[in-house]
């Protein structure tokens, strides 16, 4: 690793002033678990890292808003999110997903904002957050704006954020009556990066499904909703309908081959795991319980 400058601003506005909209070698660093890997491999060669750790006290709160939404500070470590009673009660699918996200040590250090800004398509929370209609608050010297997590990712390791913008908070609508589940398939070891992740959130039951979201990650260059499959669920939740939705999902998914599996293999995984995730969410039996480990 080549050497670089580390700036340690005390406030969000100082941090924003230290970012450079034109220079890709200047980046914010929070926990650093992902950036360290990129720096060690030489993929990222910084000239300046803007450490956000002195901002942590002001940006690690988890608040419940009057409308039921959770507002989560961007510097909240993933482990704190996992353990927060408010997250368990209002969006249990997030706590369940975190249990198998990387390992304890990474979850102790990696932050919510860093997880999202990194935009690695193999990450576990983005598909879940898209299924839950979550959004991020984004700050810059020009002010703040909100971006739906669904619209945050521009491509492989790319977000729609400008280089001088920072995610300041994650806002998650309460799960409420929606039933949600996340399934992933790791092909080499239990805690490996997934070959595929599928998150679903279903509002309504039986033949009265009002809305279903099915989001695919890891098998694709960025997390993507599978809208044709979602539309089919308007016909209900009979086995034949779920099977047709899974078939549509496999057909529409823009699957990408990588070290975790070929495109053909991942397409078959989509077919199988979309059904498993839907059955888990709908509380139906027959789910392969071993796969949830």
């Amino acid at each position: 690793m080549m050497s670089f400058e580390i700036a340690e601003p005390q406030t969000l506005s100082e941090a924003l002033a230290l970012l450079d909209p034109e220079d890709p070698s200047v980046r914010a660093i929070a926990g650093g678990t992902a950036l360290m890997l990129m720096m060690k491999s030489g993929v990222f060669r910084p000239t300046r890292l803007v450490s956000l750790r002195k901002l942590a006290d002001a940006h690690t709160r988890i608040d419940a808003r009057a409308n039921g939404e959770l507002a989560i500070g961007a510097l909240t470590p993933l482990a704190a999110l996992e353990d927060a009673p408010m997250v368990r009660s209002r969006a249990p699918v997030i706590a369940e997903t975190l249990r198998t996200l990387s390992n304890v040590r990474v979850r102790n250090v990696a932050t919510v904002g860093g997880h999202l800004a990194h935009a690695d398509p193999h990450m576990d929370l983005p598909p879940v957050l898209i299924a839950l209609r979550a959004r991020v608050a984004v700050a810059s010297r020009r002010g703040t704006r909100e971006v739906a997590v669904e619209d945050l990712f521009a491509g492989y390791y790319e977000t729609v954020l400008a280089r001088d913008e920072l995610i300041s908070a994650l806002i998650v609508p309460a799960q409420g009556e929606r039933r949600a589940a996340y399934f992933k398939c790791t092909t080499r070891a239990a805690d490996d990066w997934p070959a595929l992740g599928v998150a679903v959130a279903v509002d309504g039951a039986g033949s009265a499904i009002r809305e279903a979201r099915i989001v695919l990650s890891a098998a694709t260059s960025k997390p993507a909703r599978l809208r044709a499959a979602e539309a089919i669920l308007g016909e209900g939740t009979a086995d034949a309908v779920l099977a047709r939705a899974a078939e549509a999902a496999a057909e529409e998914a823009d699957v990408m081959a990588d070290g975790h599996g070929s495109a053909a293999y991942k397409r078959q995984l989509v077919r199988v795991y979309v059904q498993r995730a839907l059955r888990r969410a709908l509380g139906a039996p027959g789910v392969n319980e071993r796969a949830q480990r």
């Binding site: 580390i6 650093g32 890997l37 450490s51 250090v109």
Partner: peptide, 9 residues
Amino acid sequence: KAVSGCLYL
């Protein structure tokens, strides 16, 4: 808290 020293600046 446990951390991975290799990923910790």
